[in-house]
């Protein structure tokens, strides 16, 4: 059964961003330019955080919004063809939870592939993988 990334327990998030850095290391690089996961405070760090992760929608709005067919369904979530992508940003607008991140350096979307690397490096058990029965 394929697995998708989920937020298991947001109360333990400490805003270390190790998830976002782990995501960048998929490509063997540092920084945050191509990280598919983001952490934001809920109006000040004392109020806690939200971790924005792709929900692996069964019928993904980002895919429908793409005018050139660069986004395709994958066993879990979607895959982006960067060759076909024209960088219009419609996918980003279509995702109302803000899970389509943006690579400003290349003007391309960055969408989670649910590999789970971020969860492996979350030191406090905020993230996990769960089995999905669709797809």
């Amino acid at each position: 059964m394929p697995k998708r990334l989920v937020v298991v327990d947001i109360e333990r998030c400490v805003d270390c961003l190790l998830c976002a850095f782990a995501c960048a290391r998929r490509f063997g690089e540092g920084g945050l330019a191509r990280s598919a996961i983001a952490v934001r405070s809920l109006g000040g760090v004392e109020r806690g955080f939200t971790v924005v992760v792709c929900r692996a929608c069964e019928d993904p709005p980002c895919l429908h919004a793409c005018p050139v067919g660069a986004i395709e369904k994958a066993p879990v979530g979607v895959r982006v063809s960067l060759e076909r992508c024209i960088g219009c940003g419609k996918c980003r607008q279509a995702c109302i939870i803000g899970a389509v991140q943006w690579d400003e350096e290349n003007n391309k979307p960055v969408i989670c592939v649910h590999c789970g690397l971020c969860a492996r490096f979350c030191p406090h058990g905020v993230l996990g993988l769960e089995e999905v029965d669709h797809g």
Partner: peptide, 12 residues
């Protein structure tokens, strides 16, 4: 009430 980390620190 809450624990926080500096960016890049697993210790918090």
């Amino acid at each position: 009430g809450r624990r926080l980390a500096c960016t890049g620190c697993p210790v918090a």
